[in-house]
Amino acid sequence: MAATTVTEASAESLASGTTLAEVMAELAALEDPRSREVNEKHGDDHGVNLGKLRALAKRLKTQQVLALELWATGDTAARLLSLLVCRPKSFDYGELDAMLRAARTPKVQDWLVNYVVKKSPHAEELRRAWFADPDPVVASAGWALTSERVVKKPEGLDLDGLLDIIELRMKQAPERLQWAMNQCLAQIGIEHPGDRARALEIGERLEVLKDYPTPPNCTSPFAPTWINEMVRRQAL
């Protein structure tokens, strides 16, 4: 992270008038047993409604010093709030890598990748490093960033090579990595017509997430269904 000077930190603190203790007290007041029950079903150990968390972040606005303090608590709700009030471009490569490895709950990892890393000048370097990491949780972040490139900047990506890896490894991959690889498979099929037939064939044969319970009016994460539905919408 680009170092925050004492003067900058003091100015930010004076401008916000908000202390870590005050924010942690607000988060504690937002704790709701029903929200915790729902969140824990998805592997997230906090009981704060995400809509209320976003409202708190909107009121606090960007505060990098506070964001660092919130992250350092290790508390999941505090870390989610940290990711909403931080300055993404202030973190260096090493800090983002360390944060990702410390972000073991799904929602913290998801927000870190989508709200911070994707806005960082280190995103591509981190994508390449994480993609090949032996830790499947870290690797899942690399695959998430790869899916982003498949959609927005596919130049230079070996799509056939990605499909080879998916075909070989996705069926046996741990859950979070499997989800990330499945998303990449679907995005290749949706965005790249020349690779669509192979993406559909791989999805049909592997049957990953084929029976995943999907609410009404939502698209199934089963890659062939996902691909066909999004292509249909694009044609409208």
Results as ranks from 00 to 15, higher is better:
Leu157Trp: 06
Leu83His: 02
Tyr115Gln: 11
Pro174Trp: 11
Leu177Met: 15
Leu157Ala: 08
Asp45Gln: 08
Pro106Cys: 02
Gly203Leu: 11
Ala98Asp: 14
Trp179Gly: 02
Pro121Ala: 13
Ser147His: 04
Pro134Phe: 08
Glu201Ser: 13
Leu50Gln: 09
Trp143His: 07
Glu204Met: 07
Tyr93Leu: 15
Arg34Met: 09
Lys58Ala: 12
Val138Phe: 01
Trp143Glu: 13
Pro193Gln: 14
Ile165Met: 14
Val208Thr: 11
Pro174Cys: 12
Met181Ala: 08
Thr225Met: 03
Ser220Tyr: 04
Trp111Phe: 14
Arg101Pro: 01
His42Leu: 04
Ala144Met: 15
Ala132Asn: 11
Thr146His: 05
Gly203Ser: 03
Val85Cys: 08
Val85Ile: 15
Leu236Lys: 15
Asn114Leu: 09
Ser90Gln: 15
Ala102Leu: 05
Val108Lys: 00
Ser147Tyr: 00
Asn49Ala: 12
Glu69Phe: 06
Ser220Leu: 03
Ser10Pro: 01
Gly203Tyr: 09
Leu70Ile: 07
Val38Met: 06
Ala57Phe: 02
Asn49Leu: 07
Leu157Thr: 13
Arg59Met: 10
Ser90Trp: 03
His42Phe: 07
Ser220Met: 03
Glu204Ile: 10
Ile190Ala: 13
Trp143Met: 11
Ile227Glu: 09
Ser147Pro: 02
